[in-house]
Design a binder for these strands. Structure first.
Lengths: 335, 335
DNA sequence: TGGCAGATTTTTATCGATACAACCGAGTCT
DNA sequence: AGACTCGGTTGTATCGATAAAAATCTGCCA
């Protein structure tokens, strides 16, 4: 593999000049540039990025740590992040944490390894107690979850407000016994808890009782678990006429369970999800959902991170950005 | 940020000894190891991966280039690849090519930049004509598509055989006018063409005529395009009693289009897909599909790549591995 | 023609970790 | 006792690119 020295020799110039040509610096005579480019071409030279990274103290790569890339929401997120990062001249490496706290912490330490210039962490397993691990000098943005008072930037979903709106939508469509399907409610400030809070607010605002029976918790936010738990609870006699699902993935599991039980959606039960993943529009029935504007949030997260990377050090004030949302009404909540 | 030199000074040893401790080399006295680890801890030292990469000539990272991470199949693939790579001590960076030839070629040149130790390329836009671009000295594995005679390793889907089996399954269930929904058939050796060939073989074997009318081509393999084209063709009067969809994503679009037209699945039309993504089991009706054993293929691809990375150079013979498959029968092809 | 500003190019020093070979000291063998 | 092992440790050179400073070149003007 040819090095910059080889090219320099071949073109009869110094290594620095080759470097200047490659990096598009001004003040290189056109004739020289030509000669260098010709040599680069002839030798099939490619910069050694490891060497460049070492010298520059940057890797040009940021890390996106998500629970599982294999869930529509995270796939959607990753696509947006990769696109946004590309606009900033950054590459994206993806780590899977499996929603496990230790792996999320490991992702943090990886970024300290200077493998990545920055980290976008989509937390699921970490709690507020772990916030201390975050007072890193390394650029980090937490995405999708709000951890109060943390010392890092956040780009948060409009969890409560949007959940309240989604639940209110069910109320407006005439639902009176509205269930929620969510993950474990451990009191931690996680997605399920926040969305559950929004759900409760909507019920209260509508003067509906908050029956704890109607809270269906699952071990994890997967289709499988959601379907299993809903089947279970229905077998136990749980009755409801509306369901707010904390994610579209969960909603897919719920729709399946309802179909198995011969329950018609939306005639007997109305269903609404959260995330508005691509698939939601194509399900039968198509799924109403909260659309949180992934692209905007991704752009925001990458911009924040890029800003911290540039002026490394304490930098600007910690920022907390909560994205906008809109309700997308489809068949699952009736016409 | 502390360097290995700082740690060495703090522990009263040489940098080499610190390096030895960090890399778990034998022949370091326990007492020394203790002292070094204590210093590492106290200074919060982290290896600078860029420096290590430069010295070692490896980055420990491989690149997975896919059309769009935001499609269930590629999400599934990425998850498997990341897991398999982790077992080999490798990290995975994801590039999106948008199924465009130039971006796929760019991914190849990226890997030549020595940014990555190797490349797993899931082609969609490149044709056999581009195979020449592949005679790189860099480890590359093409995944999911078969390009005949290419000079690189392939881990291929059992495209023809599985498509034939899927189509035969429809025949066995009584279908007589079986449509196929696929991407453009340009004569290139791409996914659509190969699966189309399998479809034709099954029809021929069953003695059914191959009506060109029944071939519904789309511009791209997305839900949106699939749904649009099927609606269009049905509006033109196209009639069929079975559909083989070249991917599950396409099948989701088709199911939606059928629902819009008031066609019942599987009573009036049976539908089968390809890929067996997680969502397929939860659709209503649940989708029959070809399950190509993603984990095995991922493991295989990573293993091949890792082998080439280790003994860099010409290495072993080019390998062509075609994965196994099984048919998963669900509601969409009737009980 | 000498001198100078600005454009080009080269020299030098480093980024931080690690391969390699040399070195050191305490047993061990004869 | 002296040569010899061998585990443990260190000095030196190097991976390839680039920032910063120094050197050289160019054209232009007095």
């Amino acid at each position: 593999m040819a090095t910059i020295q080889d090219v320099a020799k071949a073109a009869g110039v110094s290594a620095m000049t080759v470097s200047n040509v490659i990096n598009g610096h001004p003040n290189v005579r056109p004739a020289t540039r030509e000669r260098v480019l010709e040599a680069v071409d002839r030798l099939g030279y490619r910069v050694n990025v490891a060497a460049r990274n070492l010298r520059r103290g940057r890797t040009g790569t940021l890390c996106l740590a998500v629970p599982e890339i294999n869930r529509p929401y995270y796939g959607r997120l990753a696509a947006s992040i990769i696109a946004a990062a590309a606009r900033h001249g950054l590459r994206v490496s993806i780590e899977q944490t499996g929603a496990r706290r230790e792996n999320e912490l490991a992702a943090l330490s990886l970024s300290r390894n200077r493998l990545y210039d920055g980290l976008i962490l989509s937390t699921a397993g970490m709690g507020p107690a772990d916030v201390e691990a975050l007072d890193v000098d390394h650029p980090v943005v937490i995405l999708g979850e709000r951890i109060f008072g943390g010392p890092v930037d956040h780009v948060a979903m409009p969890n409560e407000a949007a959940s309240e709106a989604a639940t209110r939508h069910l109320v407006e469509r005439g639902c009176r016994r509205i269930a929620i399907v969510c993950g474990p409610l451990g009191g931690e400030v996680d997605v399920s808890s926040l969305r559950h809070a929004g759900y409760l607010r909507a019920l209260a605002a509508a003067g509906l009782p908050a029956d704890p029976e109607l809270v269906v918790t699952t071990r994890s936010l997967t289709m499988q678990e959601a379907a299993r738990r809903v089947r279970e609870r229905m077998a136990e006699g749980l009755a409801f006429d509306g369901v707010f699902c904390v994610t579209d993935t969960v909603a897919m599991g719920v729709l399946r369970a309802l179909a198995d039980a011969g329950v018609r959606v939306p005639e007997q039960v109305r269903v609404i999800g959260f995330d508005n993943v691509d698939e939601s529009a194509y399900l039968v029935p198509s799924l109403s959902s909260v659309d949180p504007d992934h692209d905007l949030m991704a752009e925001r997260a990458v911009t924040l991170l890029a800003a911290r990377i540039d002026r490394s050090g304490p930098g600007p004030e910690r920022e907390e950005f909560t994205g906008p949302f809109r309700l997308v009404v489809r068949e699952s909540t009736g016409g």
